[in-house]
Design a protein around this nucleic acid. Structure first.
Lengths: 344, 344
DNA sequence: TTGTAAGCGTTATCAC
DNA sequence: GTGATAACGCTTACAA
């Protein structure tokens, strides 16, 4: 039962050929094998149910076909769709994906990077959960190609795929301003990273362009879950004068904020408009009155895998080294805002 | 730049000791190393930034520390939480996870199983997307321990962690019957697997126990996404006499059905009650009036990894080979149903 | 067209 | 307490 695994030499023995010939049949080259010999080898392989040992192959070839992927949290649909995109492309290209969660912690990030180095990963795709450049430097020291996703790290000049977060937020605010809103609240990420800072900057720039003065109390921190948005929404609704619109820095907290509005007995969008940045929670069904700036997260994953594989094969064109994807405004609340209240 | 990787021999040379000694320092044994020698080795390791090559180690040891995981679809929160649970436990135990998506297709499932065999995975965790036993047989032939998650395969006697789907559905229906409902519709999985059959059986058994005759037209197929539930909900609302309650075979299609109810100008739960099986979409915020039977999907993932590792180490107690987890009824709509319509 | 053998970076079994 | 050396299963240059 607990018998030794079938190796290439076993196949060679049964087929009555040399081990090298078996290799050349298995790999379809680089040497020619006569039709007759090939047939003998193939039937021996089938008879023994021989599976080439990828570990031995990897050691000999000094390279693997595995790609390391680190995302902060697979519970967050934004990241799980990215992981899906990475896996699909990797699979189609014969790569296999190691999945790690950083939980936004740099020590876990670093552990995974070090594991990937040990495992001789062919490349790494990675959504940084912190600003620490150590992990990136490690990969560089070991010449492992990598792509940063969604966020960049200050001082690290690496291949990356990001989203134009500045314009995503800018468009969201402009949309609301066009509808006549003046008091626009913004739920921001509690601990800032490059992408959340960009969104906040887009928010401020849009206000600035419209000549609306910035009110710091309208910027409320909140996590990215429904309950976080709910709580942030409650804080926002308690402000005076009450904002007439809320932008969530992601779609889930926007939906949570929307619930807070409804629970407070107010209507969306007649009393308070809500806009989410990103739209993975399928708002057209769950929140038909919520406008969103849709971010192509699946595309981020699939594209990053595609480009990483090009990078591994040293075929990545320079102009694709840093790609920035645009979000798309999906308008679902065309209703005009309420008439200005007395304090305006 | 493109220099050869630092190996154990390089470290030995710099430290002025033999390669074997380096190994024993790196692995903390099995041999004793004098404090002085150890220090020389450690500083050489640091100076050269030496990382042991896991591939070479795996080949020599004839085993790896990787676990293969196959889920149908990472976009589905149910599966992505499972993946999260698996990864957390694996990481804490020093294992690394290969992630594969089957997309419910057996050919992809089989491809991944074969990749895992090639990669000499220490174990496999796997949510079967089909009833085909081939993949399971393959793992058995290669003595790779595995756990089936969420579903079982007919004719395959394997370690498994499942959910008591029968009672999950039974409780959902009993809850509705207690509220006075008689016409209860059920959104079922379009293509049946063991777990969805169990849910349907639970539905029928509860009706049976309550002496309510089964109405086949009240069982409507629908996928597991919001839009699928929305469409199934529309079909259900068009039935005559109209059901007063809808059970979704998962929470997302239940939420979709709820939207259909609202769009039709009806109230939830006064006109139509909705119950979802599972509750990962955080219904307390997104659908405060939807009752759910919560299924512990994170626990499924973490427990499966824990037990798989025990199985790998031949320490799995027989009684833990097949575990069935219970769902939990979360009641959010205590409102009584509308008075019976004329046709009753 | 095929066989032989070196070597990938480890661990483990020998000696010393 | 330490140093040589034989595997592990494979790819591939070199012989035949």
């Amino acid at each position: 039962m607990e018998s030794r695994a079938v190796t290439r030499d076993d196949v060679a023995k049964v087929a009555g050929v040399s081990p090298a010939t078996v290799s050349h049949v298995v790999n379809n080259g680089p040497r020619q094998v006569s039709k007759e010999t090939r047939q003998k080898v193939l039937s021996a392989i089938k008879a023994l149910d021989y599976r080439p040992n990828a570990i031995a192959r990897n050691l000999r070839m000094q390279k693997t076909n595995s790609i390391g992927l680190i995302i902060p949290d697979n519970k967050n649909t934004f990241f799980s769709e990215i992981a899906l995109g990475v896996e699909q492309v990797a699979f189609d290209s014969g790569y296999i994906v190691f999945l790690g969660h950083s939980a936004y912690r740099h020590d876990r990030e670093l552990s995974y990077i070090n594991m990937f180095i040990s495992q001789q990963a062919a490349g790494v795709i990675w959504i940084p959960g912190s600003e620490d450049p150590t992990a990136a430097r490690n990969l560089e020291n070991f010449n492992i190609p990598y792509f940063l996703l969604d966020r960049v790290i200050q001082g690290v000049d690496a291949p990356s795929i990001t989203v134009d977060n500045f314009h995503a937020a800018l468009w969201a605010v402009q949309h609301l301003i066009e509808l006549g809103h003046q008091r626009i609240a913004f739920i921001k990420r509690p601990t800032d990273l490059s992408h959340s800072i960009d969104r906040l900057n887009g928010y401020m720039e849009a206000l600035n362009q419209a000549g609306i003065s910035f009110n710091a109390s309208y910027v409320v921190p909140g996590g990215f879950l429904l309950k976080d948005g709910y709580e942030a929404g409650q804080k926002i609704l308690a402000l005076s004068p009450r904002p007439t619109a809320i932008i969530g820095y992601n779609d889930l907290n926007a939906i949570g904020a929307m619930k807070a509005v409804q629970v407070a007995g107010l209507r969306v969008p007649e009393d308070v408009s809500v806009v989410g940045i990103d739209d993975i929670a399928q708002s057209e069904y769950s929140c038909p009155s919520m406008t969103s700036v849709r971010i192509p997260e699946y595309k981020m994953g699939s594209l990053s895998a595609e480009l990483l594989i090009q990078l591994i094969n040293k075929k990545l064109p320079e102009e694709k080294r840093n790609t920035c994807l645009q979000g798309e405004l999906i308008v679902r609340d065309s209703t005009a805002p309420p008439p200005p209240s007395s304090s305006d």
